[in-house]
Simulated assay, not measured.
Amino acid sequence: MNTFNLKLLTLLFVSVTCLYFCSDKLNVFPILMLGDSLTDSSILEYNNQPISTIKKCQKIKNVAMVKTHKCAGDMMASLLLRFAENHKLEVLLPERPSSVVGYSMKPQFRIQNPSRLPNGKFQVMALHTMYNYNYWNSIMETPFTLIGLTREPLSQFRSYFYYTREYFHGENRIESKEEGLSTVLEQLQLLVKGDIKKIDGFDARRYQNIMFVDFGGYDIKEDIDVTNYVQQISNNFSVLIVNEMFDESLVVLKNKLSWNWEDVVYQKMNVAKSSAMISFTQQEKEAHRLFSPKDYLLYEESVKKLNKDIEKIKNFNEQLSEFKMLNKKVSSFCQNANTVNAAISHLFVKDVKYNCNGFFNITNFDCKKVSQGILQYVKFHIDQKEKYK
């Protein structure tokens, strides 16, 4: 062996030894960043297993989501934008930070922030825009997976009403949102009976079949066409996330897209206070069902589809328990990450049965990602585009 080769081997041995024994201080190893795919052929070992031999998830990465109004859309959008960041995917973005990329009754919208990919396509859509498959298919990398969000319609109506505060202006100004909602629902009962033609000071059409419109059904009128369209949505969307079964929906999403638990852990955002969660009378429920029948059809089909998907997943209840346990640990770890336990560099959980790598690992840095809001993510992705143009 010549002198050069001997020096090279000695240098390699010293480097690997230093990396192994100094890793805790350097915070280099065994840290694995959230979303890393473990494709490195490094000789370093993790849990006495070469990284190159650890099982890898063949993740589905091209994803387009219908971000319906007030259906946990910000949480899901942040989750998808985090996934896009971790996997360096091209995202459909507005020109400046916003949760909307294009929303109108037209079948397509102007792309404000062009793709950097050679073919001009996008890999992730996560912001507000009305669903239109033909147009989406023309701007997305194919094949891509469709995700939709739904919520119990009257609960969504309440949340959207509180958000827009439409009835609190002008001559009919009402200070209390609870009183405003009660007044509108009372008027709504008269409207569906035909006793009145409109609700003064309130644009009722804006609140009618909100989810169905977001899913692109704004011009579908006939009952048979509505039923067929809802069935098309059920058939074409890989996952229809149900707000009232959010964790269950994410377990289904994780299975269908071959993701890791690190990809779907979350922290709650924009959750209404308990004082806002008033109950409804039977008359109010019936009136709203008559007012927005398409939303109820869509929601009930979503619940039906989700339950069918759950039945197809082996050991679903075990997976759900594992996910809830990990999400709880993440919440606790991330709450402490910026306070008394800031020195703890990462949360590592071994023997994670339903993660394809067999373990779960996130870092302090990942906590910032998990808790980051949608506008922060949009700004990040816009800045990245500007930086690497």
Rank of each mutant, 00 (worst) to 15 (best):
Lys55Ile: 01
Thr10Asn: 10
Gln232Ile: 01
Ser302Ile: 06
Leu34Gln: 15
Asp74Thr: 12
Lys353Ile: 08
Asn2Lys: 10
Lys254Phe: 00
Val251Ile: 15
Val330Asn: 09
Thr227Trp: 04
Tyr133Ile: 03
Leu80Pro: 05
Phe323Pro: 01
Ile147Ser: 07
Trp136Leu: 14
Asp263Cys: 02
Thr10Leu: 13
Tyr299Ala: 07
His381Gln: 11
Trp136Lys: 08
Lys273Ser: 13
Tyr135Ala: 05
Ala64Cys: 08
Leu8Ala: 15
His169Leu: 03
Arg289Thr: 02
Phe380Pro: 01
Asn209Arg: 09
Gln267Ala: 06
Leu92Lys: 12
Lys268Asp: 10
Leu185Ser: 02
Leu149Ile: 09
Gln282His: 07
Ser249Thr: 08
Tyr229Ser: 08
Met33Ser: 11
Lys304Pro: 00
Phe13Gln: 06
Ala276Arg: 14
Asp203Trp: 01
Gln58Cys: 03
Tyr229His: 12
Gly180Phe: 03
Ser275Asn: 14
Thr227Tyr: 10
Leu93Asp: 06
Val378Tyr: 10
Ser345Met: 07
Leu185Cys: 05
Leu240Glu: 09
Glu244Trp: 04
Cys18Pro: 00
Glu179Leu: 09
Phe157Glu: 02
Leu297Cys: 10
Asp309Glu: 15
Ile60Tyr: 00
Gly170Ile: 05
Arg206Asn: 11
Gly358Cys: 05
Lys353Ser: 14
His128Thr: 12
Ser78Asp: 13
Asn113Leu: 00
Ser176Ala: 03
Asp195Glu: 15
Ala337Gln: 11
Leu26Gln: 07
Lys368Gln: 15
Leu253Ala: 10
Lys256Ile: 05
Lys389Trp: 03
Tyr388Glu: 14
Arg205Asn: 14
Ile241Trp: 02
Leu80Glu: 10
Gln232Trp: 07
Phe215His: 11
Val184Lys: 12
Glu300Arg: 13
Ile310Met: 10
Asp223Ala: 04
Gln283Tyr: 04
His288Val: 03
Lys61Met: 00
Arg289His: 04
Ser292Trp: 04
Ser279Gly: 14
Met325Ser: 15
Gln187Ile: 00
Ala126Asn: 08
Val378Leu: 09
Lys121Tyr: 02
Val330Gln: 07
Ser176Val: 01
Trp136Arg: 11
Thr39Trp: 03
Glu175Asp: 11
Tyr266Leu: 03
Phe157Met: 06
Ile147Gln: 02
Lys314Cys: 04
Ser42Leu: 04
